[in-house]
Design a binder for these strands. Structure first.
Lengths: 110, 110
DNA sequence: TATACTAACTTACATAAAGTAACTTAATAA
DNA sequence: TTATTAAGTTACTTTATGTAAGTTAGTATA
């Protein structure tokens, strides 16, 4: 593949957000720590992909995983400092969407 | 697919940014109007996908396309008002990347 | 007149990522 | 012994992306 002329840090940051579901997972966790099944139903992602994304985000130091050995086991996901620092981006995107996205224009194919 | 509990506007906005290349194209166009081949080499995208993404972005009213019937033809892409309004998001992501992304950690597989 | 050149695509095909549904694991309760 | 539950994982299909070659239109050059 061709090499870009962009700042590698910015490119890396964008590659995180431009992976499907990643942004919504982070957005969802901004409202506080929560469990796998809560995130799953809140954003409508499948277990297979949520599992994959959470592993990636943990590896990148954006998400933290805490295990509570109850029955059945409880696992809570939350944002690290690095993850929480993404809040301004989400807030700006929220603002933009409220100004520029019309509800009517959204495809309702599902 | 399951339905999410998120604001449809925000979800739609995120779906734009979380499509591969879209964010980089918008970022690139923030530095001013430019031609197909310029964007192509600046961000390292293939012609096939750049063409596809620019069409989508035009349809969404984020990008404008101007034709100059010279020889060979010149076509200039630029951001609309809606597209320019995404600048704060890009600036915040730039800030975040400079604080939290280490250059060493970026995979150099290409 | 025939061939070359250029930007901006498009097509055809291979590979990678995402969607879907069924299955697994471990601890404990009925 | 069977059932229940959260948190995944596996197997398989469909969609998206990567890659390279081909197309189009208007000149310019041999």
């Amino acid at each position: 593949m061709k090499k870009s002329q962009l700042c590698p840090r910015f490119e890396e940051a964008m590659s995180i957000l431009s992976k499907r579901w990643t942004g919504l997972i982070i957005y969802q966790l901004l409202s506080g720590k929560q469990r796998f099944c809560t995130i799953e139903s809140a954003i409508g992602i499948s277990g297979r992909l949520l599992s994959e994304r959470l592993k990636d985000l943990e590896k990148q130091g954006i998400v933290k995983r805490d295990i509570f050995p109850e029955t059945p086991v409880r696992i809570e996901y939350s944002l690290t400092e690095k993850g929480l620092a993404l809040e301004p981006i989400m807030k700006e995107l929220e603002k933009w969407s409220q100004t520029w996205i019309e509800t009517e224009a959204i495809s309702t194919s599902e």
